[in-house]
Each structure stands twice: as structure tokens, then as C-alpha cells.
Design a protein around this nucleic acid. Sequence first.
DNA 1: GAAAAGTTTGTTGTATACAACCTGCATGGA
DNA 2: TCCATGCAGGTTGTATACAACAAACTTTTC
Lengths: 232, 232
Amino acid sequence: MTESPRKWTADRIYQNLRQGIMNLELYPGSRVTETELAQRFGVSRTPVREALQRLAVEGYLTIRPKHGCYIRQLDVFELAEYYDVRVGLELESVALMGKRIPYREVAELAEDWDPGRAGYGLEGTESFKDAEESFHIRLAGLCGNPVLVQYLKDVNNHIRIVRRLGLPDRDSVLKTYHEHYDICQRILANDLDGAATLLRAHIHESQAKSREVTLVQLERRRQALDQGSGAG
Amino acid sequence: MTESPRKWTADRIYQNLRQGIMNLELYPGSRVTETELAQRFGVSRTPVREALQRLAVEGYLTIRPKHGCYIRQLDVFELAEYYDVRVGLELESVALMGKRIPYREVAELAEDWDPGRAGYGLEGTESFKDAEESFHIRLAGLCGNPVLVQYLKDVNNHIRIVRRLGLPDRDSVLKTYHEHYDICQRILANDLDGAATLLRAHIHESQAKSREVTLVQLERRRQALDQGSGAG
DNA sequence: GAAAAGTTTGTTGTATACAACCTGCATGGA
DNA sequence: TCCATGCAGGTTGTATACAACAAACTTTTC
């Protein structure tokens, strides 16, 4: 889905809006109109429409037929549901490794998440969040099922918004290193069930954390936007 | 994703093309152009473009940027991958029932698939295929995670093409009844792990069957299209 | 005869015009 | 005071025009 610049204008708008939604610059629930966006980007409505339609299909916003587009609301319950889907997909990816365990690749992955050489400069940075997400994608990728990975990426698209909200402290970074490492080790030890159990717990922790963080951060962001004016 | 008629023209084209792709009237790999479709439906290119873009995002066709649209190839390996995703999602839905087992709804579902009162008129009909798919959607729906169900529906959209290819004989219909019924019974007996095991095996059987049937039927359909001319 | 360059045709991408429709408000009546 | 009707503004949905680009074909040259 994240192809290279496919259609210059339309794709630019798409990427731009997507980022805006992720960063909560486009506040959930707010309305955007094609005309307004077309003016803002200095293009016609056509590429804007294309971008909006894509975003709608992908779940970033909802289109009320003859009325307008609304940035998708973050619903804490719905977010939790996405996490459960993640569990289903990621656990199945581990199960699929039973056919042929990709020892070498898992070992490489484990090396990158060795708590001994943990990147202690990363805590509190966006890049740690990216790395965390990347771990799960890489791990799932090793099952040899690109379709599953595609679905997992799609799920990630929906939870990334909240995934980035709370910045992790040093302890939770280290904890993540340990957990990722342990999951890999279980796989290397041929204990796929054990890996699955750890993975499930790991994702459930994220799920719980996301629930705590969401409402607080959302409110904070709202206040910032209110003060900083309507960010035209 | 299967909303009611959202936008008259564009949605009509979308539904129409989607059906065409499902029924293999639009043969996999063939090219379609916006202009051609616009003429065929007697509308302008705009709604056609919208329909094509949706179909592209949903994976029914691929758009080569300045060249045209190609109906998605059916790849037997890829289809198998979709089946594995199904396993992941459906098994997780069963696992999620652990929080609160919906006895009454599962009992109703079991009743509908009681082998004793099996609908023996159904074998060989399209409606049996629909019912089969519906069982899995209903079952997953009972876990109380609409997002998961949405993903499962999406997966079904991709495998429905092949799911319908081979018509089932009487034996496999009865077998399906038994398996569906047994899965429900395990859940009612509070044996979610047992249900999961059965479910996994059940889906894997479909997966294997689909693999057999696909290539044969695909070839048959191709020949029919060749004989019956280009089906303008 | 083969390869390369220029041309031609066709298709998509974007801009704009117009029509249908929905929403909200104001006005009028009960 | 409350509800219904009509009007106005704004927004989307569709049609069409034009430009940019890609691929295929033809022509030319070696």
C-alpha cells in the first residue's frame, strides 16, 4: 500500500492528509471539505477527491454522502479491538513458522533487540516507536505470508495514531527489548507455543497502555489546538 | 464496507465491476480502461475512476499508473495465504469468547447447522456457499469485536471468487454441517481450545480444496470465454 | 535486415463547469 | 411556544475539456 509516488498530485495530497490525521493536526471528528482542501493545497478538487476516497476506504475518515468528510474519531474501545486483531494475526504468523522455522532471520532479529546492547538513547523518541512497530512487522514477515503482513500493516495504520501518543520512559523501553528478545529466543528454541504466549501478553500490555494514554493525550492535544487557534 | 447504495452512479459501477470480477466475467489479468467502461455503462469517466480506485484499494485490481487497470490475477499461493489469515482471525475470535461465552447465540447457530435437520436440497447451489460463509461471519461476530469481523469480511471478499468455483457434492455438504455443528458444541462445552482446533482443521480443508479446484475451473472458464467471444 | 529515432495514437491525470442535493435558518401559521 | 414550509447557501456528484505521458508503430539509416 505504501507505494512510491504513484500519481504526483493525488498521492501527495493523500500522504499529506494521512500524516495530518496521524499527527492529530486534523482533529478527529472535525469536518473537512473538498473545496477547502483544494484551496489549501492549490489544486483542483479532483485529486483531493481521490485522496479522500482512498483515506475513506482505508478507514482514516468517513464520508457522509452528500455532506462532507469527517476525520475518524478515535474510539478507545475500537482501538482495543484493533489490538485484538493484531493478536490474531501475529499469533498466526508465529504458528505458520512451524512449517519451517527461519532460524537465521529470527536470530538476526533477536540480535537487534538484545537487551545487552539496548539503544538507550532511544527512549522518548519517535524512532523507538517506529522500531517497535518494525519489530512486529519483521517478525510476522518471517512466516512467509505477505498477505498476512499486509493485513497487519493495515491494522498498524489504524493504531499508529495512539501508538505514538505516549512517549515511553526508559524502563518501558528496556522492558520492550527484553520481551522482543525473549519472543525470538522461544522461537529459536522451537517453542512456538511459548513464543505465542509471550507475544499475546506483549501486545495486551500495549493495548492496556494505549487505553490509559489515549484519553489524556487526546484532551491535551485538543487544548493545544484550541489555544493555537484553528490552525488554518 | 458493504454499505447501502452510497453514491448512485459510482457505487453502481463499483458493485457491477465487483460482481464481474467475482464471476470471472472480467477475466483475471485482462486490462480494462476507464474510457471503455464509461462507454459501456453510459456514464462519464469520473464515477468509473472512483469505482476503479476503490477496487484497487480493496485489491480487486491493480492500477499501472499511466497505463491502465488490470484485473487481479488469481494466484493459488496467494489464495492459500488468505486462508491462513482467516485462520488467524477466526481463531482469535473464538479465543476472545473466553471473556464471556455467548451461549445462547452459539446454541442458535448450532441449531441452524444441526446435521439432523440438514438442508439436503442445498448441495450444489450457490446459496450453500453463501450459508457456509455466513456461518463463519456469524460465529466471529459473537466475539464482540466488530473490527475483527470487518477484517474477516475483507478476507472473504478476496477468496469468495474461488470459494464459489467448485460446487459441493452431497457428502461434503453433510461434512460441513457436522464440522460447523461440532465447533459450536465445543464452545458450548466451554472447550474453546478444542473449538479452535476443529476450526483450524475445517478452514485448512477448505484451503486444500480451493487449491485443487482453482486451476481446473480457471482453465475451464477461460475456454468458455474464448469460445463465447470477447463478451463485449 | 536490424536497430534507433521520430511520430502517432491512446490512456490517464487534472482542471473546471454545472446540476442535484442536503442543511440550516427564517418566516409564517396554529 | 411550537411546528411546518420555503428559501438560501454550501457541498458533493457527474460531465466534459485539455494536457502530459507511455507505448506501439512507422520510418529512416547503417
